[in-house]
């Protein structure tokens, strides 16, 4: 059993606790134990904090990294926004001495020092990596195959982009998450402009809600065209934007889609036999019932 410090972030534990719960349970079935990262905070939000002062962003993310360094565990996390903060700051501080020294000057005041001794992973990449889990093991863990469902993937932005600094290969036509969806017995569905942003990031959701929802709506139109039963993603912020966002779009633009949106861990949980109750799917803004009816 591989052990990782589980960095929770904000939205999963505080809005979609089913996604958090599913992460522990699904990961454990695949040989990954997620340990509590005591005292973790907001990553902090890369759009909000990065926009105000990158130095604060570096220092705040470094504090979270040091907590894991003290546990001597690599970090696993389930949110693209957290990935941008935690992975990217770790990477930058490891490779840029001037930045590292600046951050450590701040951390000194709380008896902390960033040493650069751990790595950061998205749980989805650990699931996909054949050295760690791999698609075959995911397939083998399925008890309730999602046969007969058409599922589209939203990759989100901050996991794989900017491509050059990351290690995920293509950001134009990726298919690795579709492979993970197919492993659950569902039919992965391509749709127009798959790599378009959800619209929430960069503080835009807070700054200009209708602008950000209009981007979401463009994605929803394309998804509707592809006749999908559900959308899956690996970022609770994207999830919030698609799920709660559909209600806001209904309110503000008068259009509705009723497209269930599930974090991949929730989807995996279902396929591994967790009940909708165990996943708190009732907390979702958009009902997952039509999708569940096809599966269960």
């Amino acid at each position: 059993m591989r052990e990782y410090a589980f960095f929770l972030g904000c939205i999963a534990p505080n809005r979609y606790p089913g996604a958090e719960s599913a992460s522990y349970k699904t990961a454990e079935k695949l040989g990954i134990k997620l340990l509590d990262l005591e005292g973790g905070s907001c990553c902090p939000a890369p759009g909000a904090f990065g926009s105000i002062d990158l130095n604060v962003w570096y220092a705040m993310a470094a504090r979270n990294l040091v907590l894991a360094e003290q546990m001597k565990k690599d970090i696993a996390l389930i949110c693209n926004g957290c990935y941008k903060s935690i992975w990217e700051v770790n990477h930058k501080l490891k490779h840029n001495k001037e930045l590292r020294d600046g951050v450590n000057e701040v951390l000194k005041g709380i008896d902390m020092e960033f040493k650069g001794t751990i790595d950061v992973w998205h749980l989805a990449e650990l699931f996909y990596d054949p050295e760690i889990v791999g698609v075959q093991k995911i397939r083998d863990s399925v008890k309730v195959p999602l046969t007969g469902t058409r599922i589209a993937v939203h990759y989100g932005c901050h996991l794989m982009k900017p491509r050059k600094e990351r290690h995920f290969g293509t950001t134009e036509h990726p298919v690795w998450m579709e492979e993970m969806v197919a492993a659950l017995g569902a039919e992965p569905v391509e749709y127009r402009n798959k790599m378009l942003c959800c619209g929430a990031g960069g503080g835009v959701r807070g700054y200009d809600l209708v602008h950000s929802l209009d981007i979401t709506n463009e994605k929803l139109i394309n998804l509707k065209e592809a006749k999908v039963d559900a959308l899956t993603e690996v970022c609770p912020f994207c999830q919030l934007q698609f799920d709660r966002g559909q209600i806001e779009i209904q309110e503000k633009f008068g259009v509705s889609y009723n497209l269930p949106v599930l974090h991949y861990c929730e989807l995996l949980g279902l396929a591994q036999g967790m009940t909708p109750q165990e996943l708190a799917l009732d907390l979702h803004g958009i009902s997952c019932e039509p999708f569940l009816a096809k599966v269960l």
Binding site: R163, K164, C197, Y207, S212
Partner: peptide, 12 residues
């Protein structure tokens, strides 16, 4: 200035 969603498509 505040409408960038930081999606990094331009950067790629």
């Amino acid at each position: 200035l505040w409408l960038c969603t930081t999606c990094y498509s331009c950067t790629d």
